[in-house]
Amino acid sequence: MTRILVVGEVDATEAITKLSTEVATLARALADALGMETLGLIPSAGAEGGAGEFARYLPTVVVDDGVASGATASERAATIFAALESSLTDVHHVLLPASPDGRDLAGALSAFTGWGVLANATGAGSGDDGLVVEQSVFGGKLITRSTFTDGLGIVTVRPNTVTAVAQDAPGTVETRTTAPTASVAGVSVVDRIESEGAAVSIDDARIIVSGGRGVGGAEGFALLQDLADALGGAVGATRAAVDSGWIAYSQQIGQTGKIVKPQLYLALGISGAIQHKVGMQTAETIVAVNRDPDAPMAEFADLYVVGDLVEVGRALLDQLRARAG
């Protein structure tokens, strides 16, 4: 039987990322539909803790300690390539998180293997030609369905494509050591700088409270932060707010920022220009507050409040806090 390899990603504390568990959940469904098996892989020495958590989502997870903890994506790719050539020759598809590291890994692995890449999948299933991958293209204007022409390929999967569901019983964890066969030019990490009061990541946030030019300044974002805290979400922003220096680039949503798919997108003072829309239009629910009744956002939000974002935002915060008691 052929296999789907799911490459899991661990964070700085060696915990498995939420997106990795979503990719694993998708892989299980695909394996059932395609008559394949799954195998989890964490190419990082010392990741047994994260692997244990990952194994709640997959029958078998391998930790490959042929790669040092904190190795670059290129080094991980060289080790995965070596494994695909030796112990994992029955793997036909590799599924990865569409995270920065996942993209780097997919690119290097594709170069080593010559396998095709279908990036940023928003869904996947089976068809006449095997695996069919759904992607959202042209800023969400079209949904495409694609296949690999030779049955072998690499897929990166976007956050919130599926909801992670653990198996009834946890899987097993094994450790292997694969020596890389391709040489990778060295990149050393000289320092890791934690930003003071780093914002909650918007990548896989369930709720995002986002602000644009209308927020008016860095102080204005304090209200958004309070709303995000009350809702259990993260703060996002438009490019205009980031360019004005009100909030970090890591929180930017849109064409040159991140593409997000939260359950709730609360947009304050955002007009909804195409450059921003492409980053958030697939949110399940969009609620917007804006003074301009004719802003583009009024055409695709589910609920559109015509009003002052500070006044409505404060009233909303009071009511959310009163509700939480």
């Binding site: 010559g114 095709g116 949904i143 495409t144 030779d150």
Partner: peptide, 10 residues
């Protein structure tokens, strides 16, 4: 290595 087979608006 990849081929788009079908597409539609969301």
């Amino acid at each position: 290595k990849t081929k788009v087979h079908a597409w539609e608006p969301p």
